[in-house]
């Protein structure tokens, strides 16, 4: 794990609970206790009503592929053995969309709207990424 050389998230006061959640196998996003709005990326108040009264709500981890791309060029040297690799935008059941990688599927088999579920990928001791695989 310690030889992981790909980019890692800049974990901050703002997004700390998101990354802590993934490490504990929980996909969590801030949810407003006053108006019910769920939002991503993390921000310290509700974009709808500006309430600071929110809870990090655990989500289902299920969603659908909203769009995807396949990188044929390795912009990062750490990705040079991975090209062509996919990046997908997954729309979660609860609404927000996340960029991610689809695993357990060949790039050419990816289809718009396909159902996917979260896979937790511990890339270092500190960081767990949210990846997704097709629902069987």
């Amino acid at each position: 794990m310690s030889n992981y050389t790909k980019p890692l998230p800049a974990i901050s006061t703002l997004n700390g609970p998101y990354w802590d959640g993934l490490k504990q196998r929980e996909l969590k996003m801030p949810s407003c206790n006053d108006c019910g709005k769920l939002w991503y990326p993390p921000a310290p108040f509700c974009p709808e009503c500006w309430s600071r009264n929110f809870t990090w709500r655990q989500l289902s981890g299920r969603g659908t592929v909203n769009s995807w791309v396949v990188f044929h060029q390795a912009y990062f040297s750490s990705y040079k053995d991975d090209v062509p690799y996919n990046v997908a935008e997954v729309e979660l059941e609860e609404g927000p969309r996340l960029l991610t990688n689809l695993v357990g599927i060949a790039n050419e088999d990816i289809v718009m709207g396909m159902a996917v579920e979260i896979v937790y990928d511990d890339v270092t001791d500190e960081v767990t990424l949210a990846k997704f695989r097709p629902v069987k």
Partner: peptide, 10 residues
């Protein structure tokens, strides 16, 4: 909307 953590860059 880049996300280099998943290789989403440029």
């Amino acid at each position: 909307g880049e996300d280099p953590v998943y290789g989403m860059t440029s």
